[in-house]
């Protein structure tokens, strides 16, 4: 079969039209694109909905794809605002972070596990692989299944900071998972497992009947209330990220996202609002 020039021309034209289609925008509307952390995206989707209903003529497009994508998209201009579930790294200081809420990281075990609390040295012993049996920390005689998050995840970062100076490579793992839901599912299905996840997600699932229990850490109960009160040792900020000098439209949305009138919505999404 031979390729006629007309055929090739038609194919190229088709591609150009398809590419242009992605760029076409309705004028008269202010459109903002947000991309980034899959932890922050559901919250921002709700915030954007409320913002749109209060400000006709605005269109906010929220896409989840991981904190790194948020950073990359703001830098490349694909998104005006990025969402990250961690702080800015030292080499990301060309951008500006705006905290909108707080989240905690909780240790979870199966509900049938008799262990009611662990202190930092016990957690360190389990997560460095020195203690392999629940008996050694006051539990049943059973091998511990240590569930860890994949490298690069914000919850892993927060957890490592708590266990410092334990290096990331020294963090023990029997099972490595990605999302909170997967960790909760895994621990809920294994009576001898332990894992760390976002407090909000764990609280919701525990209430819905997943057989997991949130362990207090250093005597502090793992709850959103403790996170909100600033009493829990493992917390992180959920941030919006912009270029160093955002325009007025971007600032308007950020001001809205940080305003007190959204505290109910932040709580409903299982995060802790920032202190006034």
């Amino acid at each position: 079969m031979s390729l006629s020039p007309r055929t090739i021309g038609a194919a190229i034209l088709l591609l150009i039209v398809a590419a242009l289609g992605c760029e076409l925008r309705d004028d008269g509307e202010t459109t903002l694109v947000l991309t980034g952390s899959s932890t922050v995206a559901p919250l921002m989707t709700e915030i954007a909905k409320r913002f749109e209903s209060e400000n006709p003529g605005w269109r906010i497009d929220v896409q989840a794809g991981g904190s790194s994508r948020g950073i990359a998209d703001v830098r490349s201009g694909l998104a005006q605002i990025g969402m990250i579930s961690r702080e800015l790294a030292p080499d990301e200081k060309d951008l500006r972070a705006w905290a909108i809420a707080r989240d905690g990281v909780a240790l979870i075990v199966h509900r049938s596990n008799p262990v009611r609390a662990l202190d930092r040295s016990q957690i360190l012993a389990i997560y460095s692989g020195r203690v392999r049996n629940w008996r050694e920390v006051g539990g049943r005689d059973a091998e511990i299944t240590v569930v860890t998050k994949a490298e690069g995840r914000a919850t892993r970062q927060v957890f490592l900071e708590y266990l410092a100076p334990l290096a990331s490579a020294e963090l023990h793992a029997d099972i490595i998972i990605g999302h909170n839901a997967q960790a909760i599912q895994t621990v809920g299905g294994n009576p001898h497992a332990i894992g760390f996840v976002s407090i909000g997600a764990a609280e919701v699932d525990a209430e819905r009947g997943t057989p997991i229990r949130l362990l207090p850490i250093d005597g502090r109960p793992a709850s959103l209330d403790a996170v909100a009160a600033g009493e829990f040792p493992l917390t992180r900020h959920l941030n919006l990220v912009t270029r160093s000098e955002p325009g007025p439209a971007i600032e308007a949305l950020i001001r809205f996202a940080r305003s007190e009138q959204l505290h109910d919505l932040i709580r409903a999404q299982s995060f802790a609002p920032l202190q006034p």
Partner: peptide, 11 residues
């Protein structure tokens, strides 16, 4: 699948 969304630069 595990790490792409959270990886930067060389990673």
């Amino acid at each position: 699948a595990l790490e792409m969304g959270y990886a930067t630069r060389l990673h």
